[in-house]
Design a protein around this nucleic acid. Structure first.
Length: 140
DNA sequence: TAGGCCATCTGGTCCT
DNA sequence: AGGACCAGATGGCCTA
């Protein structure tokens, strides 16, 4: 809503220069606030773009929405966390095990990875993580 | 044409 | 007082 310009006709009195000054000052502040808000949102969008670049995407054709990006990031973090957790439970050398997991993780078709360990974890998973990736077996 | 997503404007609230 | 952050409203663009 724009600040209402004081009208001499409305009041039926003389224009008070101080009213005009107040109006102009308010208008200037509003414009400055709008500019700051635009800049802030641009910063936020830049952050979303950076996040999109590091989370898996199911096709290159369609950009993830902001909501999808957040969901995917959460799922991705959980998947990585699970890999780290699992790696500490097995006898193969950590480095080798991790390399194997990350290779699988970064395949072009990245359809997904994880077995859920708790309902809460499941609740936050991105839908594209809801498949079991057959090739990703824990080495014995 | 409806629905989803987004950018922008705006007023409110909190913090410095 | 002024800036940062937030959420609601609004309008534009795109796709099924």
């Amino acid at each position: 809503m724009k600040p209402r310009r004081p009208s001499c006709a409305d009041s039926g009195s003389e224009c008070d220069p101080r009213d005009l000054e107040k109006f102009e000052s308010a208008a200037r502040r509003r414009m400055a606030a709008n500019a700051r808000e635009r800049k802030r949102m641009q910063g936020l969008n830049t952050a979303f773009d950076r996040l999109r670049k590091v989370v898996p995407q199911w096709g290159q054709d369609k950009k993830l929405s902001k909501y999808e990006t957040l969901q995917m990031a959460l799922s991705y973090i959980m998947a990585l966390n699970r890999i780290l957790t699992d790696s500490s439970r097995h006898s193969t050398p950590h480095r080798q095990w991790l390399d194997l997991q990350f290779d699988s993780l970064q395949t072009e078709t990245y359809p997904c990875i994880v077995r859920y360990s708790s309902p809460m974890e499941h609740e936050h998973m991105h839908p594209s993580f809801s498949y079991h990736y057959e090739g990703l077996q824990v080495p014995t």
